[in-house]
């Protein structure tokens, strides 16, 4: 079997097998608000879908290449949780593939073996794919624009121009992506081939093999598995209920909710003391003002006699009447 068929035949089902579990966590994290996606949500979805190969590539892409697929600690957590999910899904898909398509006996720990192989290939290849695709797309866009800038095609109206440019560069970019993906699956297939070659032949006939991988999906202790899953559903639901924001995280201008400020705690003794102190302070201030007024009036009379020399009239702070304590917290 060609390495591309091998790689694709194992990775494609494994991606989709793990997806439901990863999505459940993704929704929960979105509800908790620990992860945010902006315009790159489609890319984030693809990265998460292909987590068996992207799990170690995403940090490289994010840190070294400076482009992120989303914000928040939830992203790292999602990829971390994806690891055991992927090991399980690669295990079940790998065993099925070995039995049905390769007619070989799947070795023990197949899931883990497949996982580290795919993760390794991905860690090296996915950033290369990312960069290559980026370069090719940019070149295609620039090329398409320059073709339409040429004099012969200058007269083309806006709408037609958009579609033509889009067709030109997207065709190039899509073909490039297909080629890069095929190379990637082929590389993964090559890594996996060694495991295949060391595996023994499976003894059953075709029907026997089908029955075997089909029944492989039925756990030995159904009751335990189903109870555990139901329990997980209950736990996740309760977490969801707890975390789901009651009001919209993107309110319209019309109806923004006022910021809820915690009421300052009501401490009666303190308030009384504060009030007493304030009253005493204010009383003192009033006395001071009265004194100052008396002084300034005296000085005015004196300066009237002396003339305009010397003394500056002290501006009595009339404007700042001490505010009566009206709004005391009851």
């Amino acid at each position: 079997m060609s390495p591309t068929k091998l790689g694709f035949g194992i990775l494609w089902p494994a991606f989709w097998t793990g997806l439901p579990f990863k999505l459940a966590f993704a929704v929960l994290f979105l509800a908790f608000g620990i992860v945010h996606f902006e315009t790159r949500i489609a890319l984030a979805f693809l990265m998460l879908l292909a987590s068996p190969v992207t799990v170690f590539a995403v940090p490289t892409i994010t840190l070294a290449l400076g482009s992120n697929i989303g914000e928040g600690p939830g992203i790292a957590l999602l990829f971390l949780l994806a690891i055991p999910i992927d090991i399980w899904s690669l295990g079940i898909v790998g065993r099925t593939f070995f039995l049905e398509r390769l007619r070989r006996e799947p070795p023990g720990g197949l899931g883990l073996t497949l996982w580290w192989k795919c993760a390794l290939v991905g860690a090296i290849y996915v950033p290369i794919l990312w960069v290559a695709q980026g370069v090719i797309t940019e070149a295609a866009i620039t090329g398409a624009y320059s073709i339409l800038e040429a004099d012969a095609l200058r007269g083309i109206p806006v709408a037609e121009g958009i579609s033509i440019k889009l067709t030109l560069w997207s065709t190039v970019a899509t073909v490039a992506l297909m080629v890069l993906l095929v190379i990637g699956f082929s590389l993964a297939g090559r890594m996996i081939r060694r495991t295949v070659q060391s595996a023994g032949h499976a003894p059953e006939n075709y029907q026997g093999l089908i029955v075997r991988w089909d029944l492989m999906r039925v756990p030995l202790d159904q009751g335990w598995m189903l109870t555990a899953l139901s329990g997980a559903a209950v736990v996740l639901s309760v977490l969801f209920w707890f975390s789901l924001p009651v009001f919209t995280p993107h309110p319209h201008d019309c109806c923004k909710k006022p910021e809820v400020m915690a009421e300052p705690p009501f401490k009666p003794l303190e308030t009384l003391n504060k009030n007493e102190k304030m009253i005493a302070h204010l009383a003192a201030q009033v006395e001071l003002l009265v004194e100052q007024r008396a002084k300034s009036e005296l000085e005015k009379e004196q300066s009237k006699g002396k003339g305009k020399e010397g003394t500056e009239t002290v501006e009595a702070p009339d404007a700042t009447k001490p505010a009566a304590p009206t709004a005391v917290n009851q």
Binding site: L244, P245, V246, F247, T248, P249, P251, H252, C254, C255, K257
Partner: peptide
Amino acid sequence: LHDVDYGW
């Protein structure tokens, strides 16, 4: 969207 619980 704004006033009913989980309406959004």
